[in-house]
Computed example of a mutant assay.
Amino acid sequence: MIVVLVVRWLRPFVIPPLRTRARRLPDKYKGPLLLAVDWLYPPWRLHDGVNQAQRGRDGTALRLERLRRLGDRARVVLLGGVYLDVKVGPVPAGELGPHEIGNIHPLELAAGGSALHVGRRLAMSFGVHSTLITRIGHGDPFSGELRRRLKLERWQRRPQRGVRRSKGVQCGVSLHIEHRDSHVSTLTHAGSLRELRWSLPVIRLVQSRTRGVGVLLISGFFRTSLEQGLAGAIDKLPGHVLVCMDHGDFVAEGNGDHVEALRDVFTQGLVDVYICSYPELLTYAEAVLGESARVRDLSPQDLLNVLATLRLVPEVVVVRGGLDMEDSPVLFAHGMHVSPVQCDDPFRTQDSRRGAKSAFTAAFVAHLIQGKPGSAEDVVKEAVCAALEHWRTRPA
């Protein structure tokens, strides 16, 4: 016991100089030694201006800069919904009705959900492995099939540790009906995702898997119960964890608690980065400002300026897609400064493939970590530009 106490007392004095010396070694030795040093004394324990007990807008820049300094040693945690995707089709246009269609292709099953697509893309394109935290059902064929498929996702750190099960509840299921005119209709059953909520084990899992420094990406927000205690849960996270929100389709109707929770954490600065499409941002603005504000009369840049001025959005906002501007398909805001991102080669951002939008989100998160250290504004701009290029040139 005495030896343990002495070692714990010496760590703050011995480990930081050792970490500095390790960075000067050749790559062959630097990586393993840094991993060992970080295990003994996680870098989030270092006091570099971010108060571990407080979060807010003032800490966003420090969190972004610290992520770049850590590089690949920063961890990523994906918190959100996963589904068993069932693909049906092709269905002739206009032929859905009270009769049988007997010439569809065999049904296709796959594990889906934005958190899953981001995790796959992070590993496949950038070599970044992440931790998935979600909830599936238990005791029905759909949940069994989804659990089996999640075990095959090799990109996860410690697979299944973050996958919780709800007994007697069916997992989330998405039915994708593909029509012959190429559009897709989606029917979704949230199922066990309604039981995905903040709890002490979830908070501790985020803390342990990020080791106090990294990125927490919250997705599929409106299909879950993560709005319950959202502000309190984020406030308990270590001050060096960058919190990103990519909620997916904004469903305001019937989800007043979700909208209110988003507004609260955005206003308080508890979320650092907000990733959304322009239609999603427009719907959010109408939900928090009211239709009388006539936000649809504003240009995308003016709308983002208004929301930033009123502190109704986080310190960093990335609007990708839905802008109807092929040469500037992405807007981003850092503080009160709103900038369009130019694209040399115009392209369409409308893509019906499942997980298409997640390509941009994954690239953005990866480039927040990977790259040369710099100021927060430079880090965000580089990440947005790199994500846009990856979105444009992504493989199918």
Rank of each mutant, 00 (worst) to 15 (best):
Q228R: 14
V259R: 03
E178V: 08
S299C: 05
L132E: 02
G335K: 04
R165D: 02
H247A: 13
L79F: 11
A115N: 07
G97Q: 08
T210L: 11
Q156I: 02
L64T: 06
L368H: 11
V330L: 08
T186V: 15
G254W: 09
P238N: 03
Q268K: 14
A252V: 14
S299E: 13
K30C: 15
N305G: 15
L79A: 05
G144P: 03
R19A: 00
T20C: 05
P90M: 06
V318T: 09
H337P: 00
L242A: 13
E389Q: 14
T186G: 01
V384M: 03
L270F: 10
V341A: 11
G144F: 05
L281N: 01
V251R: 13
R211A: 14
L34S: 01
R320I: 03
G254D: 07
L78V: 07
D351R: 12
S185G: 05
V271K: 01
R263H: 10
V265C: 10
A111F: 04
H138G: 00
R120G: 02
A386W: 02
P373Q: 06
A308C: 12
V380G: 12
W39M: 02
D324Q: 12
V316F: 05
P98W: 08
A383M: 11
R164N: 01
K30M: 15
R55H: 10
R11K: 15
E178H: 14
Q52I: 06
L226M: 05
A123K: 07
H138M: 09
F142T: 03
R204F: 05
F142Y: 15
I369P: 03
A93P: 00
Y29K: 11
G232L: 04
R354P: 02
R19Q: 01
L18A: 12
